[in-house]
């Protein structure tokens, strides 16, 4: 798709390849190699930053410890705002990792000139611009909120489907499908569209004109990570809290 943009005689600064993947064969399974390469880079970055931050943790934070503590407090605050003071603690690692992974993926796609590394096929980009990644994350969110609901209420979790009125049952069931769908496509679409817009602009007018769009892309990437994590937390909260609970959060 979109290969028509790669005109044979065009200026060779930029070209678009969407739908081209570096396929790896594992057994009889095919995987997208470029996605894994960049995601390993992202994972490595996160783990190394965490190790550096906690290797010599001080009471008065300095340098990278300060940065990572800021990140931790940010995701803690995010999950506490959504889940409430009582329930947020066990979910901080999941929601925080969602945020950090998506955020670092998006920004690595936008900031690091992956183009300089040539692959036999396809190109390196943010892992989140591959539908497999976003669907995987969205399905994990679905599993997480089902798990949260069952853990909290057992089979009583199903009561929420018919809670205000059984008439809404089809919509309640439909919601369970639309949630991961909207989560995954929102992230995928935003990141892919951002990278495409930048690529097209670079193709048309190289150098300085795409810069504002790139900045906008950075902004959108950060916002998308925040939106994904916030929605995940909100869904989990919804599953925990439900409609018919006696306790109402203030």
């Amino acid at each position: 798709m979109l290969n028509f943009l790669v005109a044979p005689n065009s200026f060779p600064l930029a070209s678009l390849e969407v739908g081209h993947h570096l396929y790896w064969q594992i057994g009889n399974l095919k995987v997208h190699g470029q996605v894994f390469l960049v995601s390993w880079f992202v994972i490595g970055l996160l783990v190394i930053a965490s190790l550096l931050a906690t290797r010599n943790a001080q009471r008065v934070p300095r340098g990278i410890q300060n940065l990572m503590e800021y990140a931790l407090e940010y995701v803690r605050e995010l999950s506490r705002n959504q889940l409430g003071e009582k329930d947020y603690r066990p979910w901080v690692p999941f929601i925080g990792t969602l945020f950090l992974f998506i955020f670092v993926s998006n920004w690595s796609g936008a900031l690091i000139p992956w183009k300089l590394i040539k692959l036999p096929e396809g190109e390196l980009a943010a892992p989140t611009n591959d539908i497999n990644t976003t669907v995987a994350l969205a399905l994990l969110v679905s599993l997480a909120y089902f798990y949260a609901g069952f853990r909290k209420k057992g089979l009583g979790y199903f009561a929420k489907y018919i809670q205000p009125t059984p008439i809404l049952l089809p919509i309640a069931i439909l919601e369970d499908f639309t949630k991961p769908l909207s989560l995954s496509f929102r992230l995928f679409g935003n990141i892919l569209a951002d990278e495409l817009v930048v690529a097209v602009l670079v193709l048309l007018v190289p150098l300085f004109v795409p810069l504002p769009v790139m900045l906008l892309g950075l902004f959108t990437s950060a916002i998308q990570a925040l939106v994904f994590a916030t929605l995940a937390a909100a869904y989990i909260h919804e599953a925990i809290e439900g409609h018919g609970e006696e306790e109402h959060a203030p």
């Binding site: 095919k30 894994f36 497999n132 669907v135």
Partner: peptide, 16 residues
């Protein structure tokens, strides 16, 4: 653009 394959479950496992 929408080709799903083993990337999806592997990515989920990797994320967990």
């Amino acid at each position: 653009m929408f080709d799903f394959d083993a990337t999806l479950p592997l990515m989920a496992v990797q994320f967990l």
